Simulated assay, not measured.
Amino acid sequence: MNDFYQKLAAIRHDIHQNPEISEREYNTTEFLKGYLAELDIHIVEDDLKTGVIAEIGHGLPVIALRADIDALPIKEKTGLDFASHNGAMHACGHDFHQTSLLGAAEILKGMEPDLKGTLRLFFQPAEEVSKGAYQVIEADGLKDVSAVIGYHNYPHFKPGQIGLRSKAIMAAVEKFTVRVSGVSGHAARPDLGADTVLAITTMINSLQAIVARMTSPFEPTVLSVTHIEVGSTWNVMPKDGFFEGTIRSFDPAGRATLRQRFNKIVENTADQFGVDVAIDWGRTPTVTYNDETLTPLIFENSKRFADVFEVEPLSIGEDFAAYQEQVPGVFALIGSNGDEGAADLHHDTYTVKDEALETAVTYYVENAQLLLDYFASKG
């Protein structure tokens, strides 16, 4: 690596060693503001508690570049010289993301007189809890924006590789909690109560029919119940219980249908067993859906500096999708490790390779210019 990327690697190591979890990225925010100020990059005044919005260039069009900055509440076990010791960890590589956007910002600032518009930088908080993109939007981050680009590092691709596709690249995420209330009583006389345990287990079994019998086999869908709590002893029918889990899907139009089918099964089962039920749907990302016009442009442009190929969609979610609901957006997967057996995202031994930074920085720089030129030509 040349001196510039060695500097960026050192910055990433420092960020990695001092991670902060979602909505508590206070020191990270101050560091980012200070670094951008030293580059004489304009920091936008906003209502964000954490995170930074900054701008390079002037006038229209406006293209947004996004990187997330939060870490996870995971105890790191990588053994790295710069490993975190504060109980949190950049186990999803957001240290890599924000460092690459800082590097791109430095390069693009040097090109500012020649930019055909404005580049708006989102150093976004709280991606891991699916709140940060909405916070940036509520802070008017998308005002006048023509398009937004971002990426996620991907440990199963090598440095220098970029995976991309039009349409869905990451799944819509549903988080559901179902609370059931019956009538408690003695386990020897279930006829005198309303059996919460039986109602919950029947709901869970019946919900699997959504994937197995109600969804096209050509539309990948996952429904997982991951947490159940009901009852406290062997001879008492409990009054209350709940279960929660997730649905993952890739068809934006079918997302509402999945929820409707879920609600109907749960409510009909509750009626069958004479229990009350409440369903809560969390605020979670929709499909990360790459714009069908801009994605081929970025795909071809990125071939100039990377090995670019079409990927299958991932069943994980991304709140970058919130931006794409408002403006055209493109989200890529950039290789960050590639070793056989490399730890997956959110693992306590997750690592990325510093040599992948050059591709990530160049992805921002080259495609930011491409999109400015594209929208400027449209007037």
Rank of each mutant, 00 (worst) to 15 (best):
P19N: 06
H13F: 10
I56N: 08
H13Y: 09
P19K: 01
Y26I: 13
I63H: 05
T29H: 04
D47W: 01
V62K: 00
I53E: 10
P19S: 08
L36E: 11
A54D: 09
P61Y: 03
N18S: 08
H58V: 11
Y35P: 02
L48F: 03
I41V: 15
D40K: 14
T29N: 03
I63N: 04
Y26E: 07
L65P: 04
N27L: 11
Q17A: 15
L39I: 07
G57T: 11
T29S: 03
L48I: 00
E20R: 02
R12T: 12
F31D: 01
E45K: 15
D47I: 00
Q17N: 10
H16C: 11
K33F: 11
T28E: 09
L39C: 13
K33H: 06
N27G: 07
N18D: 07
G59V: 13
S22G: 13
R66Q: 03
R66G: 01
D47A: 11
V44L: 12
E38Y: 05
I21K: 00
L65H: 02
H16L: 08
I63C: 10
G59C: 14
I41A: 12
V44M: 09
A67P: 05
A37G: 05
E25L: 09
I53W: 01
R24K: 15
D40Q: 14
G51W: 00
I56K: 03
E23K: 14
I56Q: 08
H58F: 11
H58D: 11
N18V: 00
A37P: 02
S22Q: 07
A67R: 08
I53P: 02
T50G: 09
I15D: 00
G34V: 07
R24E: 14
I43P: 04
P19Q: 05
I43R: 01
G51D: 01
R24D: 12
A64I: 14
D40P: 10
E23I: 12
H42P: 01
P61F: 03
I53K: 00
Q17K: 15
Y35L: 09
F31N: 01
G34C: 03
F31L: 12
L32I: 15
G57D: 10
S22N: 10
E55V: 06
N27K: 15
Y26K: 09
H16G: 10
I21R: 00
E25N: 12
G57H: 10
L36A: 06
E38T: 01
R12Q: 07
L48T: 00
H42K: 15
E45V: 15
L36P: 05
L60V: 02
